[in-house]
């Protein structure tokens, strides 16, 4: 004991003024705090967030700001340019474009987020089971995935829309039937690599059941890639809805969606290009912002991006 404190031996006692040299001045932050700090530093992602919040606010409160309904026609204002009465003008039936844009935002955002959540659920459950169980279950599920994936999803969606009628519910069903594939593949890959790690074995040894290991241990660790995949599902669904309504199987008149507004503005596109501009601008901005947002969240959740 005495020798070890003597100078010249293995260790030297530290000088008093150096005692605090290993003190960490920055308080250590949690994962979420760090991720959100990273997110806020990303200008494009914050821009995307602001735009999405703007459209969400428009969808929620927009219709209360003006005294019009989406199908109220005013013959005095047919094809009117923007004015104090109609902020963005009126369409060929004299319907207020601003209100219709707000209802369109409702439909687009609802379909985008609702279908993403449904696909998240189905994809996680099926992909998780497939990856965790392996063997025959995995082979059968993955063949089903291959078969659904081989056909462009737009075909399914169009056929389902025609069979079930043109409304929000059948768009959702149509988007979700092929929509979970990507999520399921992602989750399956993650689970397969995670289940070989020690903590999964530890949970098994401690007597945790399959369901508990899969959802409480493995899935939680795959949350980053899952969220990234989720952020790509939203713009995809919004795009699909706009495409369908534009082709004529989506939301039907007089209900307004961005795609159907494009469709009805198409007839007089050379005379009234502004009527086309508003919905196309809304769709593009939303999809843009969601992509930025998705990239930003993906970067923020990746702890290697310090």
């Amino acid at each position: 004991m005495e020798t070890s404190t003597k100078k010249g031996f293995w260790f030297e006692p530290i000088e008093p003024e150096l005692q605090n040299s290993e003190f960490i001045a920055i308080s250590s932050k949690g994962f979420l705090a760090e991720a959100s700090a990273r997110f806020l530093r990303n200008k494009r992602a914050v821009f995307g967030l602001v735009i999405i919040v703007f459209f969400a606010a428009m969808a929620l409160f927009g219709p209360f700001l003006v005294p019009y309904t989406y199908d109220g026609q005013d013959p005095a204002f047919v094809n009117a340019p923007p004015s104090a009465a109609h902020w963005l003008g009126a369409d060929k039936f004299g319907r207020d474009i601003f209100v219709r844009l707000c209802y369109g935002a409702r439909i687009s955002l609802f379909i985008g987020f609702a279908s993403a959540l449904i696909n998240l659920f189905i994809g996680c459950v099926l992909g998780g089971i497939s990856g965790y169980a392996g063997g025959k279950v995995d082979i059968i599920l993955m063949r089903v995935v291959d078969i659904i994936y081989a056909v462009p999803s737009m075909l399914y969606v169009i056929l389902i829309m025609m069979a079930l009628g043109a409304n929000t519910k059948s768009i959702l069903i149509g988007i979700c039937i092929p929509g979970w594939i990507g999520m399921a593949r992602q989750v399956r890959g993650q689970i397969i690599s995670l289940k070989q790690q020690e903590f999964s074995m530890a949970a098994l040894v401690l007597g945790a059941g399959d369901g508990r290991i899969l959802f409480k241990h493995l899935m939680i660790n795959a949350i980053g890639p899952i969220i990234v995949q989720l952020t790509f599902l939203v713009p995809q669904a919004i795009f699909t809805e706009a495409f369908l309504s534009f082709v004529g199987v989506g939301i039907s008149a007089p209900m307004a969606s961005w795609g159907s507004m494009c469709q009805s503005a198409r007839e007089f596109i050379t005379l009234y290009p502004l009527q086309m501009l508003w919905p196309t601008l809304s769709i593009s901005l939303t999809i843009f912002s969601l992509n930025f947002l998705g990239e930003g969240i993906g970067d923020a959740l990746n702890p290697r991006n310090k």
Partner: peptide, 21 residues
Amino acid sequence: TLGVSLPGFVTALLLIVVFGA
């Protein structure tokens, strides 16, 4: 980024408005 985000029919419509009309 633009090309990945713009829906196909929006691109087509923009082309029609700008170059056609």
